[in-house]
Amino acid sequence: MNRVGTESGALEDVSVSAADAGGGLPRRCMLLRLAAALQAATAAALGLPVVRFLLAPLRSRVAASEWQRLTASADVPLGATIALKYRIPEAEGYRQSAADTGTVWVARRPGRLDAFSAVCTHLGCNVAWEPARNVFACPCHGGLFSAAGQVVGGPPPRPLTQLEIKEEGGAIWVRSKGNRV
């Protein structure tokens, strides 16, 4: 582990002592190159697990998202736009957490029912519905989204993320399409 330091020390050492590099026998030369190569291999063998260990969270799998019941259908009358909490499955260390950490805006319009993730596509603040202006407004940098989720003002690069939504047995169900939205 601490070999690397000594090696570089050695390299610098030569620059100061400035000894000429001649006179080395070819066989000796090869030995040293071999030693260097082997040490590099060891360093890699030791370093690779470290890197993989550090990057382990990249491999953690989030449990597949399932349909979750949000509320009764009657709670969202025609024309209403209300915010509801929903669970976002997340791998957190050794456990799969499923806290009610997500906010979803459910909007019922004639002939359609939409579910928008409240996360602004700009920098991730939560947008709020402003009935007066008929827009979703982001409090952080003034992003504006239409009732259909399209960007109508401010810096957001994409429309609001939509969740799958269905009505079944008098209740509203949503399902996120994968990772955090």
């Binding site: 090696e7 590099a21 080395g24 070819p26 030369c29 190159r33």
Partner: peptide, 17 residues
Amino acid sequence: MSYLDLVQPTAGDRLAV
């Protein structure tokens, strides 16, 4: 006497050195 003293430098080595 040090590590590099013992190596017969090639062109690439020289640049690195």
